[in-house]
Design a protein around this nucleic acid. Structure first.
Lengths: 154, 154
DNA sequence: CATAACCTTGACGTAGGGGTAAAGCGTGGC
DNA sequence: GCCACGCTTTACCCCTACGTCAAGGTTATG
């Protein structure tokens, strides 16, 4: 322990910190949404902080946007490509390929942005309706209580 | 035809108008989310306008709020109770029971309101992040194009 | 070294449907 | 009256995204 600077995490801790189950983590790995983590000698999975972020990201795309894991996989792969692109500090290597990858990432993010915008709008619509109903119910409740005072329990 | 004033709908038309499949409509019925519709002599289902509204409502709760069908069932049942309550025009009958039902409906709507509010907030957070990323990507793209002009294809 | 606490793979179950088959209804044309 | 054609019926298996054991291996601790 304290072998390298990196604090490695076992699956239980990752599960706790991300709010998903261990089963889900193994499932994501199986489906290619999480890169296979390194293992201890005994076979235990060892995750890093980046994996935690990745899981949280996947969950947001699922919960907020309602995307399927297949769609999410495409997205995180495009985003991963982008990260590699950033890491490549050779400034001259194949610019057109870089442009292609960047364009792909832009497409993905734009798509996400469109979905968020649309859903956000529907949400605010729904919120308005719910507000209205709550006010109506509140009036009814007041009315019921008024009736109750005028004619107490039979 | 033109027998009664009510325009009854077959499953195909309901499917088209709600955007769900016929399979889904039968599934919802099976799960108790839709009250079993009346049938023609031959067994064909006959829906009414109210059923259409109901399906759309269920879908909003699913897509926007991400609720399970079991949760949604509870909600629509509470809302149904409320509609019956509204229809009972005997103003004196069992006020405390009415209050109980109304309170239940208020709970349901409040719950939905909470979820919407929470999700809406997360959405706007995500939207901000996506905006930021899009701007960054746009800068990178500009930079790549600048590099390309200075050193054309090798 | 024993024991608890953690982890492994594997298999089966469940929710929310999709697809398709094989059959039955309904209605207009002749 | 009968046929063709489209719509509907139930029934069955397939899929995704996991939940839930079961049976056993690993690691940390006294």
């Amino acid at each position: 322990m304290a072998d390298s600077e990196e604090a490695y995490l076992q699956i239980g801790e990752v599960a706790e910190r991300t709010g998903v189950t261990q089963r889900t983590l193994r499932f994501y790995e199986e489906k290619g949404l999480l890169r296979p983590p390194t293992r201890m000698d005994g076979g235990f999975r060892l995750y890093c902080e980046d994996d935690v972020r990745r899981v949280k990201h996947v969950r947001r795309l699922q919960d907020l946007l309602g995307l399927t894991l297949a769609e999410i996989k495409d997205m995180v792969e495009a985003e991963e490509m982008l990260r590699e692109l950033k890491a490549q500090y050779r400034p001259d290597a194949d610019v057109s390929e870089k442009k292609r990858q960047l364009r792909k990432a832009i497409d993905v993010v734009t798509h996400q942005h469109n979905i968020v915008s649309q859903k956000a709008e529907q949400m605010s619509e729904m919120k308005t309706q719910l507000d209205e109903r709550l006010r109506t119910f509140s009036r009814w409740m007041t009315e019921l209580e008024r009736v109750e005072r005028k004619a107490p329990v039979a």
